[in-house]
């Protein structure tokens, strides 16, 4: 039954998204446009020696493509759950969903599947266009390490996403978790540049952002052929974030649901 429920959520979102064909087209154009920008910035620095990029193979374009592809991927894991609540409240379908004997966790996961798959596809598209059109040299050798980094990165981001959904449930708009971890983390975690370039006090803030460890580990594995053992510190930090954030997020969500039901604002937006 759970599989069928997840399937109808996927089908619903696919049918809805594909009914906006122009949006689909613009999204693809947007990806290529962004990549062209980074490609020419990369060309600018092509013949310069940048010591801060040495540990990632030395090529800026490869460095930034991984940053952009994965930060948008993990960012969507973060904003998905809050997005599901916000969209259902805004469309007016929240009440009808809650009235069904389906757990709210299933509604959250089901409502996120399409987005998560679509952003996975987008991240893969970024990398494929990078490899085939712009000759990015990815070293996809250590698949175990890549899988471990992705899984351990998803848990803290999903947890933050659940906290974000809790805030949306109670406050409707103005979600500081997404703002802080999606917006600011792109800067603090070094999506576009190595964090070594940042002043020390900002670097200290980066240590509290899970994306810092995800991108650091992914770049080392994909660009410099590092192994699981080489990135153990990043992985253990991601594990620590997961252990702390996941139970907190579940508690937050239960509390928010109780508050929304007491206030009768479950379906307000």
């Amino acid at each position: 039954m759970l599989f069928e429920k997840l399937w109808v959520f996927f089908k619903r979102d696919f049918l809805t998204a594909s009914s906006y064909k122009f949006g689909f087209f613009l999204d693809a154009v947007g990806i290529i446009g962004a990549m062209l920008t980074f490609f020419f910035i990369g060309e600018l620095f092509k013949n310069s020696h940048i010591p801060l990029l040495e540990q990632y193979g030395g090529d800026y374009f490869s460095f930034v493509i991984i940053g952009v592809a994965f930060s948008s991927y993990l960012g969507s894991a973060l904003s998905n759950f809050g997005g599901v609540i916000g969209v259902e409240q805004g469309m007016g379908t929240m009440e009808a969903l809650i009235m069904t004997p389906t757990r709210i966790s299933t509604i959250l996961v089901g409502g996120s599947i399409w987005n998560l798959l679509f952003t996975s596809f987008r991240a893969a598209f970024y990398l494929l266009v990078g490899v085939f059109l712009f000759h990015v040299k990815l070293k996809i050798i250590n698949l175990t390490a890549i899988a471990a980094i992705l899984i351990l990165s998803l848990v803290p981001f999903i947890s933050l996403g659940i906290i974000s959904a809790s805030l949306i449930l109670v406050f409707k708009r103005g979600d500081p978790v997404s703002f802080l971890f999606d917006g600011a983390s792109k800067f603090l975690a070094g999506t576009f540049f190595p964090i070594a370039i940042l002043p020390l006090w900002i670097k200290k803030l980066s240590a509290f952002i899970p994306l810092t460890y995800s991108l650091g580990a992914l770049r080392e594995v994909l660009l410099a052929q590092r192994t699981l053992r080489d990135v153990w510190y990043d992985l253990s930090m991601l594990l620590l974030f997961s252990i702390i954030l996941f139970p907190i997020s579940l508690k937050c969500f239960k509390f928010a649901l109780r508050v929304a039901k007491q206030e009768g604002s479950l379906c307000h937006y």
Binding site: V8, F9, R12, A96, T102
Partner: peptide
């Protein structure tokens, strides 16, 4: 109807 029916624990 199909969407809400499945959420009401009916098979497809």
């Amino acid at each position: 109807l199909e969407f809400f029916g499945v959420l009401h624990n009916l098979s497809l």
